[in-house]
Amino acid sequence: MTRPMPDMDRLSEALHSALPRTESAAIIHGDYRINNTIVDERQPDSIRAVVDWELSTLGEPLTDIALMCVYRPAPLNAILGFQAAWTSTRLPSADALAQQYAVKSGSDLSGWPFCLALANFKLAVIAEGIAHRARLGAASPNGEAAGAAVPELVAAGLRALARTDGSISSASWSTKFSAVSA
């Protein structure tokens, strides 16, 4: 732990307690987002390749979809220190992406709240690592902003776990970071 974060501890414990029994397993990317794809130059709605597989593992495929959707809101821009392509309003909403996945894969979204909470936790840990390295003196122009995004990510994870209806709304993000994505 890099600093006291009771809500991060609470989210970690809640995730452990809520761990669902999964019926499916597949090779998952572990960092799936538009920045890790090669898009066809002439057909931008066509992905030609998925790259950057060092975080791949076996697991629940819905976790890749959830992480992809957590990369959508403005706190990602704060963590990266620049406007990410993945936060573009020209792309389908997170809700639409999850629904498309469910329809095309034949999967249900009953594990969605857990996967969304886990994805928020994962990005919060990454952001805290960036902030911690910046506090230690590593060159990181976005270290402070990344650290500021951590509580918002953790709160979004806790809100996701609190949902029992399996809804996929990403509206739980605050507008606190909207200036970063403008």
Rank of each mutant, 00 (worst) to 15 (best):
N142M: 10
G81V: 05
V150R: 01
N36Q: 08
E41T: 02
A78M: 07
V180D: 14
H132W: 14
L80W: 00
L67P: 05
R10D: 14
G111F: 00
N35E: 15
G30N: 03
N36A: 08
T37L: 05
D108R: 12
K104I: 00
A160I: 03
S46W: 10
T2A: 06
S24H: 15
W112P: 07
A162Y: 00
H132F: 15
A171G: 11
A74V: 09
S110H: 04
S110Q: 03
D95C: 03
G137Y: 08
D40F: 06
I126E: 06
W173S: 08
N120S: 14
A102L: 02
I79A: 09
L15W: 04
E41V: 04
H16N: 12
Q43I: 12
H16A: 13
I47D: 03
N142T: 11
G129C: 11
L109Q: 11
Y71F: 15
L67E: 05
G106P: 08
D40G: 03
A66D: 08
G166E: 06
L76C: 10
G30L: 01
A78Y: 04
G30C: 02
A102S: 07
P4C: 06
N35M: 13
A117S: 11
L11A: 00
R72I: 14
I130W: 01
Y71C: 12
L80I: 05
E23N: 11
Q83A: 12
L67F: 12
S105R: 12
W86G: 13
E13T: 05
L62G: 02
A49M: 00
G129R: 08
L76H: 06
P61L: 10
S105W: 10
A84Q: 08
D108P: 13
A155L: 04
Y71W: 13
G111Y: 00
D165R: 05
R135M: 08
N35Q: 15
I65E: 01
A74N: 12
A149D: 10
A74C: 15
H132Q: 11
A26W: 13
S107P: 06
A25S: 15
L109H: 09
P75A: 00
A179F: 01
I47K: 04
V39A: 04
A84C: 11
A96S: 15
S17H: 12
I79L: 12
L109R: 07
A179Q: 03
F82C: 09
A98L: 00
Q83H: 14
N120M: 09
D108S: 15
W173N: 12
Y101V: 01
A124G: 07
M68I: 01
P113T: 07
T2D: 03
A182Q: 14
S110P: 00
